[in-house]
Simulated assay, not measured.
Amino acid sequence: MLTSRLRTGAADGERINVEHKGDPVLLRWTSLVSLGDSFTEGMDDPGPGDTYVGWADRLAGMIAEQAPEFRYANLAVRGKLLQEIIDEQVPLAVSLKPDLVTFCGGGNDILIPNSDPDALAEVYEVAVADLRSAGCDVVIFTGFDTRSTPLLRSIRGKVAIYNSHLWSIAERYHCRIVDLWSMHVLHDRRAWSEDRLHLSPAGHQRVALKTAQILGLTDDHAWNEPWPALEQADWVTQRKADLKWAREHVVPWIGRQLRGESMGDGLAPKRPELLPLARCADEI
């Protein structure tokens, strides 16, 4: 959480002074657009009605809590493949002319058998180049380490290859990068929802705090605080839970892939316009 006071009333493009723990920090951004799939849309972090909150909304709330002039749009839609994100969301983001863009994509592609992480990275780089050419600062995200998730361990090598490309892209285009792979705190099952594919509210909060640190909004490590001790289930109970998870979540996902369907078909972005954030972080 941002615990400091921000000077309000700054004009667009003007830096906002943030005093954090006695040290002044310059906040360059007065507008944010977030691009991506279900991770950035916020599944499974329930919000009002049928909406989701998620790490991006939480991050925006941390800033808007003390900077009312801050504007935010979230164009992410669940189920989107990387090319769909680039075709549908990147041009709109460029047209909105934000100071800052968060861009995460490719996770759904990696799940598809025979997908090529090298080819995905080439597509990703073109989008990053377009965003940077438009004058946006860009934050990108690596893929998660899947070693703790049954059935997803088999794609761990593909994720690692993709991540290595993302690190190179971040260096070439001077982007900030949030290394989800190295966030060992996310290996705890409490960081994930029942489907084990989307973060829980607590997991989204950890990612929001980590991103805030990467942006220089805070210098603490609240995102990495140890989880409270938890009694471990026995082997039989864990295997029963794995089978239930595969039956209720993996099999339906495979069915959608075979039918060429997506959870996001027909859905519009939840925050398509760059507008002030109505809620503070305490209300999220």
Results as ranks from 00 to 15, higher is better:
84 E>Q: 15
42 G>L: 14
51 T>E: 09
44 D>K: 13
73 A>M: 10
85 I>R: 02
67 A>K: 12
77 V>I: 15
80 K>N: 10
92 L>Q: 15
64 A>D: 12
105 G>A: 15
81 L>N: 01
52 Y>F: 14
102 T>G: 01
64 A>W: 13
61 G>N: 05
89 Q>E: 14
110 I>N: 08
88 E>S: 13
105 G>K: 05
81 L>H: 12
110 I>R: 11
110 I>V: 15
66 Q>T: 10
110 I>H: 08
53 V>A: 00
91 P>C: 10
90 V>D: 01
85 I>G: 05
98 P>I: 12
80 K>E: 06
46 P>D: 11
54 G>P: 03
61 G>E: 06
105 G>H: 11
106 G>R: 01
98 P>H: 08
73 A>Y: 05
109 D>A: 14
65 E>R: 13
60 A>G: 15
79 G>R: 07
51 T>K: 09
93 A>H: 08
93 A>E: 10
68 P>H: 08
73 A>H: 08
92 L>A: 11
105 G>S: 14
73 A>Q: 04
75 L>N: 04
46 P>S: 13
104 C>Y: 07
94 V>M: 13
81 L>D: 00
101 V>Q: 02
66 Q>L: 06
100 L>T: 07
106 G>W: 07
87 D>P: 00
99 D>S: 14
55 W>L: 00
69 E>A: 12
63 I>E: 04
96 L>K: 04
85 I>V: 15
103 F>A: 01
69 E>T: 08
78 R>G: 12
78 R>H: 12
99 D>G: 13
93 A>M: 11
77 V>T: 04
45 D>M: 12
49 G>D: 15
47 G>R: 04
88 E>P: 03
100 L>Q: 04
63 I>S: 10
57 D>C: 03
45 D>E: 10
85 I>F: 02
90 V>K: 07
43 M>S: 05
103 F>P: 01
71 R>D: 04
104 C>Q: 07
68 P>Y: 05
74 N>P: 03
104 C>F: 10
81 L>A: 01
107 G>I: 07
100 L>P: 01
76 A>N: 06
51 T>V: 06
47 G>I: 08
103 F>H: 02
108 N>W: 06
60 A>H: 09
82 L>N: 02
98 P>V: 11
69 E>R: 12
52 Y>G: 00
80 K>T: 03
77 V>K: 02
53 V>N: 01
90 V>E: 03
62 M>G: 09
90 V>Q: 07
94 V>L: 15
76 A>L: 09
99 D>W: 09
62 M>Y: 02
62 M>I: 03
78 R>P: 09
99 D>Q: 14
86 I>L: 09
79 G>D: 02
80 K>R: 15
43 M>Y: 14
72 Y>T: 02
74 N>L: 09
70 F>P: 01
64 A>S: 15
83 Q>D: 12
94 V>I: 15
45 D>R: 13
